[in-house]
C-alpha cells in the first residue's frame, strides 16, 4: 500500500523518465531538427514536437546517459575536459557563452561556434545531438536531476552529474557578466 502510494507519486515523472526510445521515427527526427533561433544565434525556441514529446532530452534518463556516452565518443573531452573546460569553455562554472537553453546548446553542437567549436551536424543524427545537448545542459545544472547519469567506471575527477557538480564547482572567474550572451545562471 505504501509502495502503491509512493509508486503512484513517482509515476507521472517515472513513465517519461524511464522510457527508452531506441530509434526515432524519421518524420519526428526531421521535425526536431527545425529549431527557431534568434538572429544572433543565441536562444530561440525548439520545434513544437519537442514539447509534444514532453521535453524528452532534458528529463529522460536513457537520453541523458546516451548523451554522456556521446560526449566521450565524439571527443568533447579533448577540449571541454570533464566539464570544467580546457582549450574550450567549461560547463561547470555556471557560465554559458550562448545561454543555457537547449536550443542554444543544440545549435552550438549542430552548427559549431566561432573560436574553434566545430559543427557536428554532419557527424551525428538529430536524435544524438539532442541527447548530447541535454547531457551538456545537465552538467551545468545547479539542481541534481533524478534522471541525470551517475558516475562512470573510471577515475573520478569531480562528482557525477546526479550530484549537481555545478553547485559545488561554480566559479565566477575573472570575466565580467555579458548580458548579450543570454541570462546569467
Amino acid at each position: 500500500m505504501a509502495g502503491v502510494l509512493l509508486g503512484l507519486a513517482a509515476a507521472l515523472a517515472g513513465c517519461q523518465r524511464e522510457e527508452r526510445q531506441l530509434r526515432l521515427d524519421p518524420p519526428i527526427a526531421d521535425a526536431l531538427d527545425k529549431i527557431a533561433l534568434m538572429p544572433n544565434r543565441i536562444g530561440g525556441a525548439p520545434p513544437d514536437v519537442y514539447f509534444v514529446l514532453g521535453r524528452p532530452y532534458e528529463v529522460n534518463a536513457y537520453n541523458l546517459s546516451q548523451g554522456k556516452r556521446l560526449y566521450a565518443w565524439f571527443g568533447c573531452k579533448s577540449c571541454h575536459g570533464d566539464g570544467r573546460g580546457g582549450s574550450g569553455p567549461g560547463f561547470l562554472d555556471g557560465w554559458w557563452s550562448y545561454g543555457p537553453e537547449m536550443v542554444s546548446i543544440f545549435a552550438s553542437i549542430r552548427d559549431g561556434r566561432p573560436h574553434g567549436m566545430p559543427a557536428f551536424g554532419g557527424k551525428m543524427t538529430t536524435d544524438q545531438i539532442w541527447q548530447l545537448a541535454g547531457y551538456v545542459q545537465t552538467i551545468g545544472s545547479y539542481e541534481g536531476k533524478t534522471a541525470a547519469p551517475s558516475r562512470n567506471d573510471e577515475k573520478q575527477t569531480r562528482p557525477a552529474e546526479n550530484r549537481a557538480p555545478a553547485k559545488l564547482l561554480f566559479d565566477e572567474g575573472p570575466s565580467p557578466v555579458h548580458p548579450d550572451q543570454g541570462p546569467t545562471p
Binding site: 509508486g7 509515476a11 517515472g14 513513465c15 541523458l64 567506471d153
Partner: peptide, 27 residues
C-alpha cells in the same frame, strides 16, 4: 508498480555490474 511504469529492472535477475552499475544502467 515499477514494471507497469516502464521502470522495471532490465539487467537480468542477478543484475551483474557493470551492466547494472551507474555507467550502463540508466535511470
Amino acid at each position: 508498480t515499477a514494471f507497469a511504469l516502464d521502470m522495471g529492472p532490465d539487467v537480468g535477475w542477478f543484475a551483474y555490474v557493470p551492466l547494472s552499475g551507474p555507467q550502463y544502467g540508466a535511470g
